[in-house]
Amino acid sequence: MIKYTLRRLLLMIPVILGITFLVFFILLASPGNVAQMVLGPEATAEDIAMKEHDLGLDQPIVVQYIKYMWNALHGDFGTSWFQNFNVMEEFSHRIPYTLSLGFLAIGWACVLGIPIGIIAAVRHNHMTDYVVTFFSLLLSSAPAFWLGMMYQLFFAQKLGWLPASGVGSFKYYILPSLSLGGGILASNARTTRTWLLDVIRSDYVRTARAKGNKESTVIVKHALRNSLLPVITQIGVSFSIIMGGSVITETVYAFPGIGSFLINAVKTKDIPIVMACIVVVAVIVGLTNLVVDLLYAVVDPRVQLGSKKG
């Protein structure tokens, strides 16, 4: 297991180098003079040349990239081009917000989504099942930013139960995390339902019933264990979706995480910030996928870690 973990961590390195190089390359190779944008329209040709030298833009892209990655390895993600702050420092303030929002969203998706799926499967073809299926379809068909706005409108403006935006106590996290995790919640409910229905029909569940077990025991002790495996495999993908979705949710709720930070940086083409976001998200997503794969092997003893390609 340790050997496997180490190998996976080593495999992450070329992937992260690849994605950072790709993004670095398309950002710098794109049209538009960066130094001109930083300095504004009145800058003279000498000013621009000076600034380009300062930012290292006069060197070949590969050299710039190697320098950037070397500094990044030492925890230095450079300074913002437009506002003079240290990117790493700003990130250390913002990452906790994004991560707690993301984990809370995954939490809702599992704590609410799985039981809802179980109920729908147990009450198969009853009213409850239809209602759950309908709402989960609706939830995964609506744009996340729009749902977020609707929650704000209803729970904050109309009912006044929860704050509409900003950060503070736990209350401020409820609406953003629910709208961030809404789609995953719906898909967790659907996956649980589908697989549980599949497992319920299998022979060993019939045997468990035939032994005279209570229905609840049959579901929880026998059927559920096997039907949750696909849900666990989904968590890795879900986390990636949630890291992407945080860009939108954080914008809707004016949440000071890395998502809203990225969007502002993208609009101004503040490359150090965009790069740092990509690196951080790629590392977080890679690590979560590794943890999920390890977890999968723990939950399902049939899975052999070495043979499975990550």
Partner: peptide, 9 residues
């Protein structure tokens, strides 16, 4: 490599 970050990012 392309899948190492969320699609929307």
């Amino acid at each position: 490599i392309l899948m190492s970050v969320p699609g929307i990012l």
